[in-house]
Amino acid sequence: MIALDKDTFQQEVLEAEGFVLVDFWSDGCEPCKALLPDIEALAEAYGDKVKFTKLNTTGARRLAISQKVLGLPTITLYKDGVKVAEVTKEEANKSSIEKMITDNAL
């Protein structure tokens, strides 16, 4: 997975062609850390169809809010730089993220 920051987000996500998945997380978010292995497993399975990235929102708060992300964990799927699907909080689990990928990107 590609670790993004506020300087690379524009290029890697908003200006990218095709599907990009962003895992919004932060240092203080325990549910995010618990979810990470599941997302890494999905990256193994779908990495050829979707570019998997993650953004630590600590230090990139304005960027996260600009993407209308104000809660963690949030997993967002972009296509050609436009948000097409998102799961957040309790909904952000392995099966719903996988469904978001298969419904939109396959």
Binding site: S26, G28, C29, E30, P31, C32, T57, T58, R61, A64, I65, K68, V69, L70, G71, L72, P73, T74, T88, K89
Partner: peptide, 16 residues
């Protein structure tokens, strides 16, 4: 929820 409504301060506090 996750757009300003939260049930987890440690998760979301730093957005605010």
């Amino acid at each position: 929820t996750g757009k300003g409504v939260s049930y987890c301060a440690t998760c979301d506090a730093d957005f605010f």
